[in-house]
């Protein structure tokens, strides 16, 4: 047995809070660290969905945003902002995205892209 120490016994509430915190962190890992490949690219212009494309193609998309033309490139199952008229170029520097749930935003030009997962598995089995 351990001698009663100055550390005291952990109280019930503490243990529960720690457990909740562990669950929360585990949830964060699970939701933000999956490496599921994306299948589709959804582009938004302002608050509307501009278009959705399959990543299974090579293609350049030019979008007329509020301050100019943003070019998004799809190639080899990945997508990126290739050029944008925004001053800070955060969107372009973010580079290629290929995992489901990843997103890049060009705020000045109000263009954003988000990668979506594939269709439900049985679709590909049926066809």
């Amino acid at each position: 047995m351990v001698k009663p120490s100055k550390w005291g016994k952990p109280s019930l509430g503490d243990v529960l809070v720690i457990l909740f915190a562990l669950l929360f962190v585990a949830y964060l890992f699970k939701s933000l660290w999956h490496n599921e490949q994306a299948a589709k690219l959804q582009i938004r212009l302002g608050d509307k969905i501009y278009a959705t494309y399959s990543l299974d193609q090579n293609r350049n998309i030019d979008i007329q945003g509020s301050i100019g033309v943003t070019r998004i490139v799809i190639a080899n199952g990945k997508a990126r902002f290739a050029s944008s008229p925004c001053p800070n170029q955060y969107c372009v520097h973010q580079g290629w995205l290929n995992h489901k749930g990843h997103a890049a935003i060009c705020l000045p030009n109000q263009v954003s892209m988000e990668l979506l997962g594939g269709k439900k598995p049985f679709d590909s089995l049926n066809y």
């Binding site: 915190a21 562990l22 890992f29 969107c91 520097h93 973010q94 990843h102 890049a104 935003i105």
Partner: peptide, 17 residues
Amino acid sequence: PNAGVAYLIPIFMAAAL
């Protein structure tokens, strides 16, 4: 201001824990 930070959130939160 881009979504790239999301990747690090679990590490930060685990450290906070």
